[in-house]
């Protein structure tokens, strides 16, 4: 068990059903690709450590939401405590790309008063021949909303690490600059514990952990 990490970031993964959210997360956390997987019910959880710089580890706690419309009223409740997220669409499914805007609106309205850092992910990029969304238009959309754009494939393990690490780095930069702060009662960013020997003071803004009893 690895207990040493600087921060814990909570990420939420959203997007239409069947775009491959769970597969992407499983590839990232378990290193495998499942050919068949059941639709997610409500939300599932995964976690993994990411080393963003040598010796600097971030624990990612990933909330994998159900894409199906019928779960929408439930999954809405889960947005609030996330600091960042992956917004997925399937490059072979134009409809899922058109829904990106709605997903973003939905997420932004439910994380209030907090803000959330999103990364736009065009998934299933191994299926180039069936592509319905060009890289250019996806990049343009991402740019319009101030997001990065990355194309991934869980099956061929393309850019999976990259996508999560980039998002983690972006959030880490915002935490470091003080634009995102640790807040009591908000689970988006939590400070980890660093043993004294590797403690580098200015980076670990420890939240107040005194016993209040």
């Amino acid at each position: 068990m690895e207990a040493i990490w600087l921060y814990q970031f909570r990420l939420i993964v959203i997007g239409d059903s069947t775009v491959g959210k769970s597969c992407l997360i499983r590839r990232f956390t378990e290193g495998r690709f499942a050919q068949v997987s059941d639709p997610t019910v409500g939300v599932d959880f995964f976690s993994r450590l990411v080393e963003i710089e040598p010796g600097k580890r971030i624990k990612l706690q990933i909330w994998d939401t159900a894409g199906q419309e019928r779960f929408r009223s439930i999954t809405r409740a889960y947005y609030r405590n996330s600091v960042g997220g992956l917004l997925l669409f399937d490059i072979t499914n134009r409809r899922s790309f058109q829904n990106v805007h709605d997903w973003l609106e939905e997420a932004r309205s439910h994380v209030q008063p907090h803000s959330i850092v999103f990364l736009l992910v065009g998934h299933k990029c191994d299926l180039e021949s069936q592509r319905q969304v060009t890289r250019q238009e996806a990049e343009k959309l991402a740019g319009a909303y101030g997001m990065r754009y990355i194309e991934t494939s869980a099956r061929d393990a393309i850019n999976v690490e990259h996508a999560f690490t980039e998002l983690t780095r972006d959030i880490f930069a915002l935490v470091r600059s003080g634009e995102i702060t640790i807040q009591e009662g908000w689970e988006g960013v939590k400070s980890g514990f660093v043993p004294n020997v590797v403690h580098s003071s200015e980076e670990v803004t420890k939240s107040d952990r005194r016993c209040l009893c």
Partner: peptide, 29 residues
């Protein structure tokens, strides 16, 4: 201490976990 306060179950467990992590981190070093 937390049990006396008005705290949710997950808070109680989370705090316990964090303490343990701190301990583990200290022991490891």
């Amino acid at each position: 201490g937390l049990m006396i306060r008005n705290s949710t179950l997950s808070q109680v467990l989370r705090e316990a976990k964090e303490r343990e992590e701190l301990q583990t981190a200290e022991t490891e070093s």
